[in-house]
Design a protein around this nucleic acid. Structure first.
Length: 443
RNA sequence: GUGGAUGUAGCUCAGUCGGUUAGAGCAUCAGAUUGUGGUUCUGAGGGUCGGCGGUUCGAUUCCGCUCAUCCACCCCA
């Protein structure tokens, strides 16, 4: 048979690594909720039109990276390439923007883009996203940035130096950006630019600003800068954002080259960038998008938020050797040397069933030898192993082996007695393991 | 979409200047006096040497194409 592999740019998460995902997700939800951002869920696919109007039809994401197909009803459907458009659509659809504002939501969801995979870039990746609607002031920007900072410092090792740098900029409102664009175009007109930038000039001249080509860099050095061409309102807004972020003790640098790839941004844009995970160093990025709700047919509603790439956080954790592994060790293994249909086999199964109300209990289901069952119990890290065979049935007594020191405890063959004995034996230690692994996740 | 590197067991990798049954370590499974783990010893299973085509008496080894992985550009989280 021919092997079927995972589609290009997708990743399996095996049980061994799933703990780190739980830990990230748990922390994300906890931090989001501590800032008042409730969870929202939305479909993995939408009408293609939503992304064309939301993300923007000049963007690469919409032009060449969307998974678009026609469904059996003839509709053009696209897998979501990002989360914000869907949240806005859902908000409009359910009248949320006419209700109590601000509306604050978070999500953790897979997004899909047809890209060529490389380090930190996948065709399916997961984003932790934050959305805040109905707050126009710089306090909202600062709150969103603070949330981002809190999340990152909770999932990454924070030494004297942070493993990432916050870059902050303002690209102005539609009015001052238009004026700025003209100014920039006039400046760039006569300058020598690389092939890419010549193309960029037509579509999105702002992108020329963060070209990595050395020749363009030198040209751009003297170019007019976005945040110095802002209108009065945008200037005050940006100044306040900086003040508030500084007040919160969050270090940042103003990068006047920083622009974003999605059309809907205005005023504040920011990126948390690291240098340890390859060329795709942006781990979290966002900003303000005041025009988006109206653009998609809702009431004029100011908005801001961010998206954070979970896989890139994982990569950064790897780079810093952050280990995260919950213990999944059985408390008790019940072994038997008899056949599954024998009285002992039946008793073992019933007992396992009862004791699982208290602990994680393993019982062999492969029919391997008693010795192999012990070996397996040891490998799993079981605290106790209890054997039930014909002798135990006859005497109505069981011995339970304490694996740490090999001591044998004797007990009546009765679930209540066994529970009592084991509870007494572990009393000085910590409580048994029956709890949600995602609840006690922290570094 | 463009460019570079790589592709041998579940994992990490040897190896074949083209030649009979392709190896190691780890992992898995089974035994070492028949109902008791971690060490040790012995043994076993597991690979169409990424796929297709070409050159050749003969290819896992050479050539072409293709697919996949990794990395960079582009773009973005």
């Amino acid at each position: 048979m021919e092997k079927i592999t995972a589609p290009r740019g997708t990743k399996d998460v095996l049980p061994l690594e799933v703990d780190r995902w739980h830990m990230l997700e748990t922390t994300a939800r906890r931090v989001a909720q501590s800032y008042g951002f409730q969870e929202i869920r939305f479909p993995a696919f939408e009408h293609t039109e939503l992304f064309i109007r939301g993300v923007g039809d000049t963007t690469d994401i919409v032009q060449k990276e969307m998974y678009t197909f026609e469904d059996k009803g003839g509709r053009s459907i696209s897998l979501r390439p990002e989360g914000t458009a869907s949240v806005v659509r859902a908000g409009i659809e359910h009248g949320v923007f006419q209700g109590a504002l601000p509306f604050k939501a978070h999500y953790i969801a897979p997004v899909f883009r047809y890209e060529k995979p490389q380090a930190g870039r996948l065709r399916e990746h997961h984003q932790f996203g934050i959305e805040c609607y109905g707050a126009a002031g710089p306090e909202a920007d600062a709150e969103v940035i603070a949330l981002a900072h809190t999340f990152l410092t909770n999932v990454l090792p924070v030494a004297t130096e942070l493993p990432f740098v916050l870059h902050l900029n303002s690209i102005g409102c539609p009015t001052c950006r238009g004026a700025y664009r003209d100014k920039l175009l006039a400046y760039l007109q006569s300058k020598p630019l690389c092939h890419n930038c010549t193309e960029r000039m037509a579509r999105n001249p702002l992108r020329v600003l963060d070209c990595k080509e050395a020749s363009c860099q030198s040209v751009v050095q003297d170019a007019p800068v976005t945040n110095q061409c802002l209108c009065a309102d945008c200037q005050t807004h940006f100044a306040s954002v900086q003040t508030y972020v500084r007040q919160l003790g969050i270090p940042f640098v103003v990068s006047d080259r920083l622009v974003r790839g999605l059309d809907y941004y205005n005023r504040t844009v920011f990126e948390f960038i690291c240098t340890q995970i390859g060329a795709q160093g942006t781990i979290l990025a966002g900003g303000r998008y005041d025009g988006l709700v109206e653009q998609l047919g809702g009431p004029p509603t100011p908005a801001c938020g961010f998206g954070c790439g979970i896989e890139r956080i994982l990569l950064l954790q790897d780079a810093f050797g952050v280990a995260m592994r919950q213990e999944h060790t059985p408390f008790l293994c019940i072994t038997t040397a008899d056949t599954p249909d024998s009285p002992a086999g039946v008793a073992a199964r019933l007992l396992t069933q009862k004791l699982r109300a208290f602990w994680y209990v393993e019982q062999d289901i492969t029919g391997r030898s008693l010795k192999a069952q012990f070996k397996h119990a040891d490998r799993l890290g079981a605290k106790y192993v209890m054997t039930i065979g014909s002798t135990e049935i006859e005497t109505a007594t069981v011995t339970i082996k304490r694996m740490a020191d090999g001591a044998k405890l004797t007990c009546a063959l009765d679930s209540d007695a066994i529970v009592a004995l084991l509870l007494a034996d572990i009393a000085p230690q910590t409580a048994p393991v029956m709890q949600d692994s995602s609840e006690n996740a922290n570094l």
